[in-house]
Amino acid sequence: MNVINFEFKKYVGSLWFWIISLWSILVMFMAMYPVLARDAALVDLVLQHYPEELLRAFGMSGGLSLATVAGFFAFVFAFVQLCLAIQSAYYGFQFLSVEERELTADFLYSKPVSRSRLLLYKYVAAMAALLITNIGLIMGTFLSIEWFRGSMVYDVGVVISLLLSVPLFQLFFFSAGFLATALSKKITSVIGPAVGLAFVLYAISALQRIVGGALLALVSPYNHFDPNYILQRGDWNMPLVTLSLVFIVAANVVAYFMFMRRDLHAAV
């Protein structure tokens, strides 16, 4: 428990940053919703004149009207996902590599705890941080919707279904960071790769929405957990979610075994 407590404390400062960022995105975008809801017919008419590719790229052509709560929230949630992806990938790249980068590995790994147990403790601390982010997101989601929806109604169930997909979405990016760390000889920077991974996969999903293609949809978790899909149907795109699950399991298994045999190099 000493390690979990110690590791979790490292996240406390950044957690506030991420949760406030998420709340800011939610409030900032949802604040625009009353205007759209008031002139729903006009908004739909305007959007009809936009190029279809542009609407697809920003997830605004999923069949849901932007004037509905669910339709507008699907649009907003794409930005929430981007923020969650950066945070999760950052934690994935960071949670083990920090000890090697800041040269504290000698201290920690020479203690009487097995490497697998240390990995578990650090993993649990990171998961706790992601879970708390999630709780913040759930609160922010419903508060911002209730604050700005006015008289518009929405199906709480489909929003819950979308929010329930978030832990898997986070785990995808966290696992990708973990795997990259375990496969790399040295991780010199964390935020760069984390932002890069989040944006590249976002760009791939945007491209897939424009040009289509079932194969391209396999690549990006933004497609696997497409907010438009979930909010429109109320359930997940199971084949793609399964693919994410397979990646998560495989990445963690490979990263675990790589890390268990990893040489921790001296400072000089």
């Binding site: 504290t104 020479s110 001296a266």
Partner: peptide, 9 residues
């Protein structure tokens, strides 16, 4: 254990 180069938090 005392390493030759010491680094702590």
């Amino acid at each position: 254990y005392l390493p030759s180069e010491v680094f702590y938090y």
